[in-house]
Amino acid sequence: MELDIYDETGEVSPEHIRLIESILQMAADYLKLKDNTEMSVTLVDNDTIREINRQYRDKDSATDVISFAIEDEVEDELPLNLEEMEGLPRELGDIFISIERTQEQARDYGHSFERELGFLAVHGFLHLNGYDHMTPEDEKEMFGLQNEILKEYGLERR
């Protein structure tokens, strides 16, 4: 999988960038995604994610992670399936993670920054791949898969 990571905070260590890369590569393998799959992760502060949340979700608050899936169907648009276009890479979309919220939630939940960062990266990744938690059944499926990936990676909740 082709993965671009952008640190807009300038505060994320190379080790944490590598954690995001490796856990998302493992998650891509877990879902058996093709090698020509592409996506990006942008690491931001609370002010930036709050603005994104306000602009795209009409919620005026900072959140932890936001995913923008390319293949999501939008009202009044034709469905787009880039996978069917031979030779073109499959673009999943973009994930934005607030590093400040990651730190806050790790502290609040009593686990490591690494565990929370891995959790948010996988959570956003699953959203890009069509998983959601709007119904109890969908939540059980998504969170179960999320926990399997985190456990296999070695970032299970303690």
Rank of each mutant, 00 (worst) to 15 (best):
D29T: 00
E11I: 09
L128K: 03
S22C: 13
I52N: 00
E73V: 11
N36C: 05
V12W: 08
F113T: 02
A62W: 08
D7C: 06
L155A: 07
R57E: 15
P89K: 02
E75P: 00
L80Q: 07
E91T: 05
E152Q: 15
S112V: 11
E75F: 08
L126T: 04
P89N: 02
E15H: 15
I66W: 03
A27E: 03
G118Y: 04
E139R: 13
V122D: 00
E141R: 10
E77S: 10
S40D: 10
D35I: 02
D132N: 14
A121H: 04
D58T: 09
R57A: 15
H133S: 07
D72G: 06
R101H: 14
Y6W: 13
N53W: 07
P89D: 01
Y153F: 15
E38M: 08
G154I: 11
V122S: 04
D7A: 01
E114G: 05
L88Y: 14
R18D: 15
G110S: 07
G144L: 10
M85R: 05
R57L: 15
L33W: 03
T37D: 00
D138N: 12
L43M: 08
L155H: 06
R107E: 14
E137T: 12
H111W: 15
R101G: 08
G87L: 12
I97W: 02
S40F: 05
S67G: 13
L43A: 06
R157C: 07
D60G: 11
K151I: 09
S112F: 13
P136Q: 02
G110T: 03
M1K: 00
M85Y: 12
A121L: 10
K59A: 14
D76M: 07
F119M: 05
E141Y: 00
G93V: 07
S22Y: 09
R157I: 10
R115C: 06
K59F: 14
E104M: 11
S61H: 13
I23V: 14
L80N: 10
D132T: 12
I99S: 03
M39F: 13
L155G: 02
R90I: 07
P89T: 00
Y30S: 03
I52P: 05
F113A: 01
E91Q: 11
T135A: 03
L24H: 01
Q105I: 13
D45N: 15
M1L: 13
G130Q: 05
E83K: 02
V74Q: 06
A106I: 02
E75Y: 08
F143G: 00
G110Y: 07
E2W: 03
Y109Q: 09
E51H: 09
E15Q: 15
K32G: 03
L88K: 07
R157A: 10
A106D: 01
L128C: 09
L78P: 12
L31I: 01
L80I: 14
V65L: 05
L43T: 03
Y131R: 01
F113K: 01
E86Y: 12
S67Q: 00
S40Q: 08
L24C: 09
L145C: 09
D138G: 12
G93L: 07
S22L: 14
